[in-house]
Simulated assay, not measured.
Amino acid sequence: MIRHPPRAARFLALALAAGAVLATGACSNGSDAATSTSSRSAKTLTQGEAETALINATDLEGNWTRVNDAATWRDSLPIGKVDAAQFFTDSKTTAADCQKLLNVLYGDALLGKPSGASAVAGFSGGSDGARMLYQVADYDRGQLDSSLAWLKTLPVKCDQFTVTGKDGSTRTAQVIETSLPKAGDSRQGLRLTLQGPVGGKPATLTLDLAAVRLGTNAIAVTNGGLGGTEADSTQQAVTLGTQRLKDVLAGKTPGQHDPALKDRAWR
């Protein structure tokens, strides 16, 4: 007569076997993800590669022209002090985050200071006279992740706040989240609106902010102006810019992309 193991023993054996399969699958998935990410992260951009990864005016629809004075661009509306008293909870911390946003915009450092190569291109024009600042750079991975995580908190922390300018004038600010094409390893989109006086007259500054991480490298886009922002151009810059950066990281020469990419929705 055949003797079967006790039911408890059989159950334990099955449980151990299932656990082993799950553990193997988990290790395999984690390894694949780690390999994929590390293969990209291991590539450090040279200065020449960062410049090659920049988009061109032809990548953007509309009357965009590349300019050489982007480093001198400074909007006056973001300059001012955020008062902590206007926030109900975590007032000092929240005010500091909103102040940091204004500071990094004025300093053209949306993702913080790059740790390696960095290249910037400026474009003006568009249908509403907007301006776009486009940056490709290599960062410390921890800093890059922290910067993206910080940007993600701003639509809640800084959804509405006021700024006092050096002349005592008051500006009203609003931050909302915007969707970006599914590009890169991670991404974050925001829209900042600032209302206040410019030259003694009421004005509204609207800026689209976009950041996309690819390994330890990232692109950052600031697009807009007093005439509004062109969301389509921001989307195009993110989509085609990420592809150019991928090409450069893979050792390829960025080529001409299908024009349909400019109009397709990656959502």
Results as ranks from 00 to 15, higher is better:
52 T>Q: 15
35 T>K: 11
99 Q>K: 11
155 P>L: 13
48 G>I: 05
210 A>P: 02
96 A>R: 13
78 P>H: 13
162 T>H: 02
183 A>P: 01
204 T>C: 04
89 T>K: 12
15 A>V: 12
30 G>S: 09
80 G>A: 12
159 D>A: 08
86 Q>I: 08
229 T>C: 06
80 G>F: 13
123 F>T: 14
185 D>T: 05
153 T>M: 01
220 A>N: 03
108 D>M: 01
104 V>N: 08
200 G>N: 07
76 S>P: 04
56 N>S: 15
233 S>V: 11
130 A>I: 00
207 L>N: 10
164 T>Y: 00
230 E>P: 02
191 R>I: 02
233 S>K: 04
183 A>V: 08
76 S>E: 15
197 P>R: 13
185 D>E: 06
135 Q>I: 05
123 F>G: 14
95 A>K: 06
185 D>I: 02
197 P>I: 01
42 A>L: 08
66 R>P: 05
176 I>W: 05
267 R>W: 04
31 S>C: 05
242 T>L: 01
36 S>L: 10
160 Q>Y: 06
119 A>H: 00
242 T>I: 04
191 R>C: 00
267 R>S: 15
39 S>D: 14
99 Q>G: 13
112 G>F: 08
209 L>P: 04
118 S>P: 01
72 T>R: 15
262 K>C: 01
17 A>V: 08
249 L>P: 03
120 V>S: 09
199 G>Q: 07
57 A>C: 10
112 G>A: 07
